[in-house]
Structure formats: C-alpha cells, structure tokens
C-alpha cells in the first residue's frame, strides 16, 4: 500500500479551479516534501481555501490532479483522507456530544482499536489540556476550547500531513504558541505541515518554505533565504514586498493592507517573537 519515501507528500499538477466565470486557482503546480512546514501565503480571496478544499477532497479540480501520499484525491478519497488531518477555516463540532465522544467517533472512523483510542485521547487531552471539560457537551465550550478539541481530533491519528486553513484566527496567545510548537514538533517527526495564512509574520516564523498565491496564481515558492537571494525584496523586507504585491493590483489596496496588518499585529503580539516588520507603520490609525 505505502509508496516509497521519495514521492512528495503532496503534489499538485496543473490544478485549476473555476467558480463559474471566476478562476479561483489557476495552473497550480507544487510539490511538498515530507518533514516540511509549508506556509501558503496570500491575501484574502487569493485562493488558499479553495486550494485546501481540493487537497482534502471536498472540491474536485476543474483541471489537473492532486496526489496526497501517492493517492489521487479524486479517485481514492478514503485513502487520501487517511493521510490528512484537516483543520478547516470554520471548524465543526457536534453540539449534542461531549468532547470525548467526538474524539472517540473520529478515532473509530480512523480505524483505531478501543484501547488505542483511549490511549491517544488521553495523550491529546494532556497536550491540549482538555481534561477539565472533555466530558461536557461541546455546545458549552468557549471558542478556544472548541479549537483545542478540533486540533486534538485532527492529530489523534498522527497524520502524515497536517493541513490547517488560517488556524490562528481567534486563538488566544497561549494557544497560538502551543499550535506553533506543535507544528514544528510535527515536522520534526518527519511529517508534513501545510498551513495557509494571510499574515507574513506567521509564515516567516514557522515555515521552511513559503508559497505566495495571489489571485489564484502561485507567484513565488521558496525559502526565506531564497527570497532574499533572488533579490525579490532587495532591501525591503518581506512584509513590504507582500504589501506591494497587494497594492499593485489596484483593488482597494488600502483595505487589503489594513486587514493584513491588523491581523499580523495581533498575531505578532500574541507570539513572543517580535516580527521583523515592527518598524513599519501600522494602519491602526485608519
């Protein structure tokens, strides 16, 4: 069943997705290796969510193909899904279920035995500090509690590929730290992390490689160092480059920029790392 290791964890080949007349993702070709943290960076409406929904099998590509762990996501959705732990942009929990019952359901669906289920739930409960509320109905949880249960459910089966669509939105500082550490740890085990974000600070901080998507087109792939090397930014930093990108296209650039900035600011404040862009003027006054 398992393919040999050299195959990339995720491989997009010439993927395109249209919504009627709109092309949300255009001719995307991209390979992501095992053990890599990949940040998919782009402003709102760039096509990040669409790309991720295709990767996890919710939407089919209009053209091209996607393989996850060697499995085609359209033809073998079950096998591909078994490789993935997916945190959607709007995570879902059943209201009338306790956190533990929810985790047990996910474990069963993923084919775990009863003992294994209990062991792994105990482990995740410890990591995400869920023990206090795990036996309460999820409808009584706060947003942060819900997020933590969702992360626990996604990591329950140690997925070779962790996919998260803008996961930091709405998380408290402590959870942001936790999730960042988790992603690094996940990659350190030789597993892959694919995370989408519209804030550069996060990408700079945790990613091995960054892909920048803009209006459905992948306009850059490489490491931070490569971006410097290629002189993409010369003496500007990445944040400015990103701003320029969103500016140059004439579509209410100020609004885009302010969204990017305020969110980046929050996230930066949440993490203990001072972003390199701290000296840039923020749009808070606007």
């Amino acid at each position: 069943m398992k393919r040999s290791t050299p195959t990339p964890m995720v491989e997009f080949s010439h993927v395109r997705r249209c919504f009627g007349q709109t092309t949300a993702v255009d001719d995307l070709s991209l390979a992501i290796q095992r053990g890599e943290v990949f940040a998919f960076l782009g402003p709102n409406g760039a096509g990040k969510t669409t790309t991720i929904k295709m990767m996890v099998g919710l939407l089919h590509p209009s053209q091209g193909a996607i393989q996850v762990g060697g499995w085609d996501v359209v033809r073998h959705p079950r096998q591909a899904a078994q490789q993935i732990g997916y945190v959607p942009d709007e995570p879902f929990l059943y209201d009338k279920l306790t956190g533990r019952e929810f985790l047990e359901f996910v474990a069963r669906i993923r084919g775990m035995s009863a003992e294994e289920t209990q062991q792994r739930i105990a482990r995740q409960a410890e990591v995400f500090e869920l023990t206090d509320f795990l036996d309460r109905l999820t409808e009584t949880y706060s947003h942060g509690m819900k997020q933590r249960v969702v992360f626990a459910s996604v990591l329950l089966h140690d997925p070779p590929l962790l996919v998260a669509d803008e996961p930091m939105v709405g998380l408290d500082p402590k959870s942001v730290r936790l999730v960042k550490d988790l992603m690094r740890a996940h990659a350190a085990q030789g597993k892959t992390v694919f995370i989408s974000t519209h804030t550069l600070a996060l990408a700079e901080e945790i990613a091995d490689r960054i892909g920048i998507i803009h209006r459905g087109r992948l306009i850059f792939v490489g490491s931070l160092a490569q971006m410097h090397q290629e002189g993409l930014m010369q003496d500007k930093n990445l944040e400015e480059f990103f701003l320029q990108l969103t500016d140059g296209q004439g579509r209410t650039p100020k609004l885009d920029a302010s969204e990017t900035f305020s969110a980046a600011g929050e996230e930066a404040a949440a993490s203990s790392v001072v972003p390199p862009s701290a000296d840039l003027p923020t749009s808070k006054e606007g």
Partner: peptide, 10 residues
C-alpha cells in the same frame, strides 16, 4: 456536518 464527514476517511 457534511464538510466534516467528507474529509474523514469514510
């Protein structure tokens, strides 16, 4: 719950 169920290996 559909988007959730369809991304599980069911």
């Amino acid at each position: 719950d559909i988007a959730f169920l369809l991304t599980l290996p069911v």
